[in-house]
Amino acid sequence: MRLADSRDRQGCPGRGRPRSEAVERAIVEGVMKLLEDGVPLADISIERLARTAGVGKATIYRRWSGKEELFVDVLRGAEPADPELPGVSMRDDLVALLESLRRRGLVSRSSAILHNVYAQMKSSPKLWAAYDATVIAPRRQLGFDVLRRGQENGELRDDIDIELLNDMFVGPMLVRSVMRPDTELPEGLAEQIVDTLLEGLRPDRP
């Protein structure tokens, strides 16, 4: 799990005791155990988590500022890693982004815990805001960057609203992943969505 990124930005790397991967793993596994036992996110306090993981509260707070940040780290670790973009063309980068969404959809469908947690997050504005700021917003920005490069490179018409266009690309995958869980997410779906939309979005060639 990628647990160090957000925490490393908070403190001074040279201070304090070395962070133990075993301790961090025990804390993360403690969260997952409570979720597997059916404990709602709202009922998982730092005190309860510390008892479950067999650590002190201070140990947790040295690594995370609060439970919202911890939960976001746990969820990110349970999801597929963010994609590395090929960087060859706008089309290939878009396919990589949508393929990442497809894989996330498959993971959330197969994990009852993740499905339940995502549903609970919507009723916790603070937790959802933390997830949006650290996970969703950076992914959206990545899509904006790909589309802007496409306009600059002449792969995409320059009269199109980038934010609207990004929603048009990711929308079909999100609809199938979230709103229509009975719909298949087959291999090749990312390519199909991107190529269908790009047919009408490329600049006219003389």
Rank of each mutant, 00 (worst) to 15 (best):
M1V: 04
R2I: 13
A4F: 00
G11W: 08
P13R: 10
R17G: 12
R17N: 05
E21K: 02
V23T: 14
V23Q: 06
A26Y: 00
V31I: 11
L34S: 10
V39G: 00
L41N: 06
A42C: 08
I44V: 13
S45Q: 07
T52Y: 01
T52N: 01
A53H: 09
G56D: 09
K57C: 06
L70G: 01
V72D: 04
D73M: 06
V88C: 04
M90L: 10
L97Y: 03
L98R: 02
S108W: 12
I113E: 13
L114C: 04
H115V: 02
V117W: 05
V117L: 09
A119W: 08
M121G: 01
P125C: 04
A129M: 00
A133F: 00
V135S: 10
P138S: 08
Q141H: 08
Q141R: 15
Q141A: 06
Q141N: 13
F144Q: 14
F144S: 02
N153L: 11
N153V: 06
G154N: 07
L156V: 05
D159R: 04
L164F: 14
M168I: 12
F169S: 03
F169Y: 13
M179S: 07
M179L: 14
M179G: 09
P181I: 12
E184S: 15
A190V: 03
D195V: 11
T196C: 12
L197F: 14
L197A: 03
L198S: 08
E199M: 13
L201W: 03
P203F: 05
